[in-house]
């Protein structure tokens, strides 16, 4: 279960960076997998450093432009894309 969740997180991140997954679907699936399926004690330090900040970003995603303009807490597609790139770099930098 935990191993599948870890693989799923990697697959989701890869598919989102490749453009196969839109931002809203990526945020929903990443949040569910990381929050409810993953045993965080089994993560490597690199994975914890990568997925933790990314999770704190995806939970604030809003698909509505008007609400993002009105509520400064919400994040848009560009913000999620930047967070995903940062997480991917953190994973690539760590030895597998």
């Amino acid at each position: 279960m935990t191993e599948q969740a870890r693989l799923r997180l990697r697959r989701l991140l890869a598919e989102f960076r490749a453009g196969k997954l839109d931002t809203e679907a990526f945020c929903a699936q990443f949040e569910h997998t990381y929050n409810l399926e993953l045993d965080k004690s089994t993560l490597t330090p690199a994975e914890a450093a990568a997925y933790g900040p990314l999770f704190q970003q995806v939970v604030w995603f809003s698909p509505f432009r008007d609400e993002r303009a009105r509520i400064s807490n919400y994040l848009g597609e560009a913000d999620i894309a930047r967070a995903a790139e940062a997480a991917a770099q953190c994973l690539e930098a760590a030895p597998s």
Binding site: A28, Q29, E31, H32, S62, P63, F64, E67, I71, Y74
Partner: peptide
């Protein structure tokens, strides 16, 4: 609630 929250409570 905002539409974003309503959408999230209906989804994940």
């Amino acid at each position: 609630m905002s539409r974003t929250v309503a959408r999230q409570l209906a989804g994940q």
